[in-house]
């Protein structure tokens, strides 16, 4: 039996009188896509921040198991160690690509920067890897020296994905990756994420308010409400046969196009 890549035990976090995380536990296995869904204010983005180490919980633990199976307490490690983890084993895809990309650096430079942070110093090699990645996310290689600000929203998001995946992370956190995009661009991006994730065997924690996105990308789902996990399980089972009153409400509230 393989062991989880990431585990959270009894996380608690209070913002004033609001319980952002109320006894949340979860586990993620290698190669698995887990969606965290819930309406705004449910705590899903807070959970992502705590899992990825950027916000500290009041109580509870987040444990990461490295490729040598050693366990690391994410909130006990020092900032340099956590940064190193984010540069190597982990990746983060932000909802707004402008928050992750360097807008004043070329497209190729954005991809190459993460490789250089990992210690690659061969310019020709970095440029070739960047070109490969631009091709994988369907950005024309001739745009490699262009600045991101000349790119459309969908292209920026694809560039962010290339930048994130170029260093071969094992675990990728995604915060509403298709959030700010036109529906037509969204569909293309969903297909891209889906095929990259399955081809590279990535483990992904995906925060989304869109349960259709969760259904298409995630094998397992976690439904949050007021800082609590109200239901979790196989994605299609939770969405087609919801047991908790809140999940039933959530599923029945979706507009059918």
């Amino acid at each position: 039996m393989t062991l989880p890549l990431l585990e959270a035990h009894d996380l608690q976090l209070q913002f004033g009188s609001i319980r952002a995380l109320d006894h949340v536990s979860m586990a993620l296995w290698p190669g698995e896509v887990l969606a965290i869904v819930g309406e705004s204010g449910s705590g899903k983005t807070t959970l992502l921040k705590v899992l990825s180490g950027s916000d500290k919980p009041d109580a509870g633990q987040v444990l990461y198991r490295d490729p040598e199976l050693a366990l690391h307490d994410v909130h006990a490690m020092g900032a340099p160690q956590l940064r190193a983890l984010h540069r190597s084993d982990w990746g983060f895809v932000q909802q707004n690509p402008r928050d992750a990309l360097r807008m004043g650096v070329s497209a190729g430079g954005n991809v190459g920067e993460r490789l250089m942070a990992q210690g690659d110093r061969n310019y020709g090699n970095i440029r070739q890897v960047a070109l490969d990645w631009l091709a994988q996310v369907e950005i024309d290689g001739r745009r490699i020296d262009d600045l991101p600000r000349t790119f459309s929203g969908g292209m920026l998001q694809r560039l962010q994905i290339a930048r994130t995946l170029a260093t071969h992370p094992r675990l990728v956190f995604m915060d509403e990756p298709t959030g700010g995009l036109d529906v037509s661009v969204q569909a293309k991006l969903l297909d891209l994420i889906r095929s990259l994730v399955s081809r590279l065997g990535l483990a992904v924690i995906l925060v989304t308010h869109d349960i259709a996105v969760a259904r298409l990308l995630a094998g397992r789902i976690l439904v949050m409400r007021r800082g609590q996990v109200v239901e979790t399980g196989l994605t299609d089972q939770v969405l087609d046969d919801p047991q908790h009153p809140y999940t039933q409400l959530l599923v029945s509230s979706v507009l059918q196009a």
Partner: peptide, 9 residues
């Protein structure tokens, strides 16, 4: 059918 596929619990 759906129960046999694990789609229903």
């Amino acid at each position: 059918m759906r129960s046999l596929y694990g789609n229903y619990r």
